[in-house]
Amino acid sequence: MAKPAPNKVRIRSKSLIKVLVISLLAHVAILLTIGGVVIFSAATQDSVEFEAPTAIPEQPPQVPIQIKINSNPTPPKKVIAAPAVSVIDISDIEVPTISQNSRVAFGTGELGGNWSTIEAKMPDIDFFGVKTSSQSIVFVMDISGSMIGDERGPEGFKIVADEILKVLQSMSDNGSQTKFNIIGFAGGVETLSGSVREINEATIQRTKNWLRRMDPAKALKRDQTFDSIDWNKYQDGLHAGTRTDLALKKAFSMNPEQIILLSDGEPTGVSVDEILMLTAKLQEKQPNPVKINTISYRSKDGRSFMNALASRNSGEYLAVE
C-alpha cells in the first residue's frame, strides 16, 4: 500500500491544532463569563446580607421591686352610707347657755361605740383684765390712804370694790364652784373671813358691806383732800402704810390655788428683796405652788416689784392706768 505524502500530514496537524486552540479559547471565554456572573451575584447578595441592622433604642435598666408581705393585713374599711339629711327649722329651739365649767360627751369607734366626757374649763374670773380659773382664790387689796390720792381720786378704792363685786356676781350667776376670800392691807391686815368661802348671794352681800367699811374715802369730809388727813391717827392707822409682806403671809395661810394682789405703790416696812425671799419660803411649805397675779393700780410706783412677784410665782402682771 502506498504511504501518504508528508505535506498532507503536516496540513492536517495544523488544522487540528487550530481547532483545539479555538475550542479551548471558547471554553475559557465561557468559563470566564459564567464566573463573572457568579462572582457578581455573590457580591450583590453579600452587600444585602451584611447591611447594618436598624438601631434599637436602649431600654433603661429595670429597678428591682421589693414586695413586703404584711403578716397582719388591715381589714378592708367598711363603707356606711350616710342617711338622708332633712332640713329642720331650729329658730324656735332654745339652746342652753354654756357655763364656765361645761362637760362635753363624744364617741369613738364605729358609730361612736365608746363614749367619754371631758370637762372644758373656761376662765370664770376676769378682774381688771386678769383672766383665770381656780378652785380657790384670795383677793389681796391695798386699802392704804393713797388708794384715793393723786390719779386715783376719791373714787379710787370704790372702783376696785365695784370690780370685785362684779366678778363675784358673775361667778355666782354662772354657777361657779370657786371659793374666795378678801384681804385688805395697809399698816396691818384685815380679812373678810377666816378662810375661803363659797360664792352665793349671802357672801356677796357680806362682801359689799365689808368693802364699804374698808374704803379710805370714808375719812374724807366736805372740802377735805387726801393730803389733809393724818392717816396714822385715823382709825388707829388702819389705812397707813403698805405692808405687802403681812398680807401675803395671811393669804398663804388660807392655802388658796391663786392670789390676786392689787396695790398702788412700793411696799413699806420691809424691802422688795425680803418680800420675794419670803414668798419663796412660803411656796416651799405649800403642797402645790400658789399662782400669784399682780396688778399695779393707777400708779407707776412699785411696778418692777409687782412684775417680779408675778413672774417668780407663775402669775400674770397687769398695770391699770
Rank of each mutant, 00 (worst) to 15 (best):
S15K: 09
F40H: 08
I17W: 11
T44F: 06
Q45R: 06
T33Q: 08
A43G: 12
I17E: 11
V38Q: 03
V38Y: 07
V21I: 13
V37G: 15
K18S: 05
S23C: 13
S13C: 09
L24A: 01
L16M: 09
V9G: 03
S41C: 12
L31W: 00
A26H: 04
L31N: 00
L25Y: 00
R12H: 08
A29Y: 00
D46C: 10
Q45P: 03
L20R: 09
L31I: 00
L31T: 02
G35Q: 08
K18A: 14
H27K: 08
H27D: 11
S41K: 14
Q45T: 03
I17T: 12
V21T: 10
L31Q: 05
A42Q: 09
I30V: 12
H27C: 15
L32G: 05
T44H: 11
A26S: 11
I39R: 10
D46V: 12
I39S: 15
K18H: 10
I17N: 14
V19M: 13
G35D: 08
I39D: 07
L24W: 04
S41M: 13
G36V: 05
I11V: 11
R12Q: 11
R12S: 05
F40I: 12
V37C: 14
T44Y: 06
L25T: 04
D46W: 12
R12T: 08
G35S: 15
I30R: 12
K14L: 07
R10P: 01
A43Y: 14
A26E: 04
V21W: 06
V19I: 13
A29I: 06
S13K: 11
L31F: 03
Q45C: 03
V38R: 03
V28S: 13
A26Y: 00
T44V: 07
F40G: 15
A43Q: 14
I30P: 01
L31G: 05
A42V: 02
V19E: 08
A29V: 05
I11M: 09
V28N: 09
T33E: 05
A43D: 04
A43T: 14
L24S: 06
V38N: 05
I34A: 15
L25G: 08
L16R: 06
S15I: 11
R12Y: 09
K14R: 14
D46A: 15
V28P: 00
I39F: 15
S23F: 10
V38H: 01
L24P: 02
K14F: 15
A29W: 04
I34D: 06
I22G: 05
S13T: 10
G35K: 01
G35E: 02
A26N: 01
A29N: 08
G36C: 12
I22D: 02
H27R: 09
S23N: 06
I34T: 13
V9C: 03
Q45N: 05
G35C: 08
S41E: 10
V19R: 11
V9Y: 06
I30F: 09
K14P: 03
V37S: 15
V38E: 02
L16K: 01
H27M: 15
I39Q: 11
A26P: 00
L20H: 07
S23P: 00
